[in-house]
Amino acid sequence: MLTAIGLVELNSIAKGIEAADAMLKSAQVEILTSRPICPGKYIVLISGDVAAVESAVRAGVNLGEAAVVDEFILPNVHPAVIPAISATTPAVDMQALGIIETFSIASLIVAADTAVKAAEVDLIEIRLGTGIGGKSFVTLTGDVAAVKAAVEAGSASAAEKGLLLNKVVIPSPHRNLVPSIM
């Protein structure tokens, strides 16, 4: 059972691969994704029990040193986060649309987890850094009040680190926009 996830984001691909190896060797964790992202960064996203994820992230950060851009440990990740990262979220009824955009992958995943825990919303997708200059964004839907609350809560966590780029709530997205979001 997935209990925790952790991520280390580095500005060096070589150091990122080395950090991934150190993370796997330091604790009993599974890699959810380990790959280069734009612009020449590398992410390592792992899962496991809380203590193992903490140990592995610490190992990755220690090895990565100055190459570490951002990192996190989410001990009780919301069940909707992993499907949204892997773009396997089941189709949802589009209501209001919320978007949070950040400068780092780590800050965005934490923002998405915070948002979905703050209000009754459905995550649509968590887009991580590839093909968008290393930025990330999450799209979510629900009734207008819930989307506003979720976007505010999620964007606050990224803003605390100075990594919030933008946040938007569209109360009633045009029906022709919906297919490009889903």
Rank of each mutant, 00 (worst) to 15 (best):
V53F: 14
S107Q: 01
L63W: 05
I99N: 06
V57A: 11
L97C: 14
L165E: 12
G131L: 07
L163W: 07
E65T: 06
A80T: 07
E65H: 07
V68T: 01
V68W: 02
G134M: 04
E125D: 11
I100R: 00
A146E: 03
L165A: 14
K135E: 03
N62K: 14
G134N: 03
M94N: 11
A115K: 04
I126N: 10
V53N: 12
E71I: 04
A159W: 06
S104I: 00
E125G: 07
Q95I: 11
S86G: 14
A112V: 06
F137G: 00
S86H: 15
M94A: 15
V138K: 03
V147K: 00
K148L: 13
G134P: 01
E101A: 05
L163N: 12
V168F: 12
G98A: 12
S172H: 15
P83H: 10
A112Y: 06
V68A: 02
G142Y: 01
A67Q: 05
K161I: 08
I82V: 14
E65P: 03
L164V: 06
A96K: 13
I170S: 13
G162W: 09
V151W: 05
T139Q: 07
G131V: 07
I132C: 00
A59S: 13
A158L: 04
A67G: 04
I105A: 14
T139R: 07
V138T: 06
A159I: 10
L97K: 14
A156L: 12
D93E: 15
I82D: 08
V121Y: 01
I105R: 01
A67M: 07
A84D: 13
A106F: 05
K135N: 03
K117I: 02
A150Q: 01
S86L: 15
A145N: 09
E101K: 09
V69I: 13
A96E: 12
G129F: 03
L128W: 01
A149R: 02
E120P: 06
I170A: 11
G142K: 00
P75A: 09
I99Q: 13
G98I: 09
I109F: 03
G162H: 12
A91R: 11
E160M: 12
A80M: 07
A84N: 10
P90T: 10
E71L: 08
S155A: 12
I73V: 15
A91L: 11
A52I: 14
A87H: 15
F103Q: 09
G129T: 06
A119L: 04
T130P: 02
